[in-house]
Design a binder for these strands. Sequence first.
DNA 1: GTTGAAAAATTCCGCCG
DNA 2: CGGCGGAATTTTTCAAC
Lengths: 160, 160
Amino acid sequence: MQGKKENIDETDRKILNILLKDANTSYVDIAKRIHVSPGTVHVRMKRLVRIGLVKKAFLNVDYNKLGYDICAFLGIHLENSSFYSQVIDALYHIPEVVNAHYTTGNYSIFVRIICRDTEHLREVLHEKIQEIDGVQRTETFISLEESIHRTISLESREEV
Amino acid sequence: MQGKKENIDETDRKILNILLKDANTSYVDIAKRIHVSPGTVHVRMKRLVRIGLVKKAFLNVDYNKLGYDICAFLGIHLENSSFYSQVIDALYHIPEVVNAHYTTGNYSIFVRIICRDTEHLREVLHEKIQEIDGVQRTETFISLEESIHRTISLESREEV
DNA sequence: GTTGAAAAATTCCGCCG
DNA sequence: CGGCGGAATTTTTCAAC
């Protein structure tokens, strides 16, 4: 288990809240907004990266404008849960799969894929995902619109 | 409809592929890797931002280390689809909701939420989401592990 | 698309509370 | 020790070619 809580103080939390909204905010800007020096922002961030709390940033692009018109969710039923790691491994080799979650509930694996068009989606579903050993059946939900896309805001709590 | 395809050439695609993997890569670095000048990377990116293809960057943080232990997916069944926009509006005011998709298939709205613990999840579900007018019922899938998290790579195709 | 110079940001180090 | 300020380095930005 690698994900245990870390000691984060109010300054760290303020810095993260600004960067969670826009990861391109400069340290100088952040420093001004929370009334510390740019050097302090720098050392705080360096520590947060070192302890693995902050990983790299992702660019948010308009996939439609890149010719990727379809975003779909797949619920994947496994024949039994022992297939989990080998199915994840197979999914990892399919570039259209951008997220995969091991979940409770009706499905065992929940996946998000990005495809160019319906033909591309059909190909990924039938020729790639349903061919994976251990996959029993899948249910597909096509996203017609992503209405909300954001990150959480950290509450200012007295202790973390 | 705002998401129509744009003309992207091979240079744009190379730049995007690097930034999609790590949004913090400096333009100088990118320039070296694709053998153009930093100025070129700059003007290309400026255009991509202007046409709305590139939006802001998101920081990737370890929510567990911030004390948020639960990531869950909700399938929300609406009483009928005319409730869509008012339900999205209500969801927007719930900070725990980080993504919401309008989907085909069994659900009408598909949502991802981030919560501190099971009690927090219960509170969000019962006191916030199921209270929304137009929400018939919800199904919850708790993510036990996010095994894959990445972005697509742009293929080098002859035309876009 | 490139170059080169100005402006800005990052990064590091010695100093102070 | 953690935070501050300034100096050196690097990057971003923009004009002219």
